[in-house]
Design a protein around this nucleic acid. Structure first.
Lengths: 240, 240
DNA sequence: TGCATGACCGGATTCGAAATCTGGTCACGC
DNA sequence: GCGTGACCAGATTTCGAATCCGGTCATGCA
């Protein structure tokens, strides 16, 4: 039996239970039972319950990052903030783990969110640095406007995303339409707030596509680095 | 002793205690003590504790609405979504009651938020109707773009606002600058997402000012109606 | 006579100690 | 030597007793 595969089974069981019961009610015993291993075996993989459940969240984010990278490789236009957020939003609506993380759902996450914020502070900082650089590169290629400080653009982007994520739950009843429509509205909002008219101007379509293709490698590298850091962090949660 | 003034004193004490202790810990006894009245007297004004504390929230919103109306009367450009949200954001950062309401702070509001959503459903619906009409009027006057369904524009507006409100708390540490700067970023975001270039184009400044002046009366009437409904609702909470 | 009041009621909440549960360890045995 | 579950201590839950508090209303003051 492959060790890594066993760890994966434990993670799977842990994720399932976390979503069904919430952090507080999940027990290592039950996780072990569902993963068909002894309780002690769980501790051969992760130092603590906290580390294990944190790994569940990390895995969720890592999956999201990987999907995003895949999309960028398939279509350079995906590096545009509007396209990227649209992708994130779809991932978000489809993955319960990401939903819990992004809406700060304390019913499910319990103390995990606070722990995550402290434990993963470095990773978060690195993510912000990447997003900053991402925006800078896009500006250099004329895909993002420069009528505003990059830092402020990043804040706008994060706030808008936060808004659409939270709105999902907060304005749930009165929210219109399908997730796809909401994703489009989000994309439109981000595009208007950050991107150059070139992106939406059909006549300039060709040139913006070329610019995106030119900018893509550096940006993809940026997120590949981030993915590697996430993977490292996940390994760091393991016992060795 | 004026009855209305006594009610005001009770409301004041209730607001103070709600913010300091949160809904659960507030007691009618303590409110009465601070307002220098007997406990029974509180019940001469409001039917229940819930109604009283709900009135505190309503008063907060009503004050916000009144300030907004005042600004619109002073400068018609304030009817632009970007300007209006900017004003709301400033009120929000300065008024702890509004902060609690808009960030859904369950530590402070306890069950009050759920109650409010049910109790004030009609008022909320009416507010959405007003916002819809507001946007329609602005479109008619060429101040808001019509490249998008009004309903979707409203959703974008609410989601963006939600995002900036929640971001205040959620991204608090890493949030940049002063509240004023954040308000400007919010205004910029809303302007880009909804308004016509005319608004930001200096050359078109005159014409958009004129358009705003023309549109203002109907929009002000819209919010005067809403203000009246809020005031009615607040009176409805009273024991006749 | 009319309005303000606080003692009073019962349901809700809190308290605390006993009982139970669970994260984490480690000696055992496969 | 790797996987396991019995075991331990501390955390959490339980549950009945004690307390608190929202809401009422008989009292009494002006």
């Amino acid at each position: 039996m492959e060790q890594a595969e066993r760890g994966e089974r434990i993670l799977e069981a842990a994720a399932e239970l976390l979503l069904a019961w919430g952090y507080r009610r999940v027990t290592i015993d039950e996780i072990a039972r569902r993963a068909k291993v002894g309780k002690g075996t769980v501790y051969l993989h992760w130092r603590t319950k906290e580390a294990l459940l944190l790994a569940v969240l990390l895995r969720g984010k890592l999956q999201g990052q990987r999907r995003e990278l895949e999309r960028m490789r398939a279509d350079p236009l995906e590096i545009l903030p509007s396209r990227m957020m649209c992708g994130h939003y779809r991932d978000f609506t489809e993955d319960p783990v990401l939903r819990a993380v992004y809406t700060d759902d304390s019913d499910i996450l319990g103390r995990l969110n606070d722990v995550a914020k402290k434990e993963l502070a470095g990773l978060i900082t690195e993510g912000e640095r990447a997003l900053n650089r991402h925006l800078e590169v896009l500006r250099e290629h004329g895909l993002v406007r420069d009528d505003m400080d990059v830092i402020h653009q990043r804040y706008a982007l994060m706030a808008v995303a936060t808004g659409f994520f939270m709105a999902e739950a907060l304005l749930s009843d009165r929210a219109p339409d399908t997730p796809e429509t909401r994703a489009d509205i989000l994309a439109h909002t981000v595009r208007s707030a950050l991107e150059t008219p070139a992106g939406s101007d059909p006549a300039a379509g060709r040139s913006s596509e070329a610019a995106a293709a030119a900018a893509a490698p550096e940006i993809i590298a940026l997120y590949e680095h981030l993915e590697e850091l996430s993977a490292q962090e996940m390994r760091r949660q393991l016992r060795n």
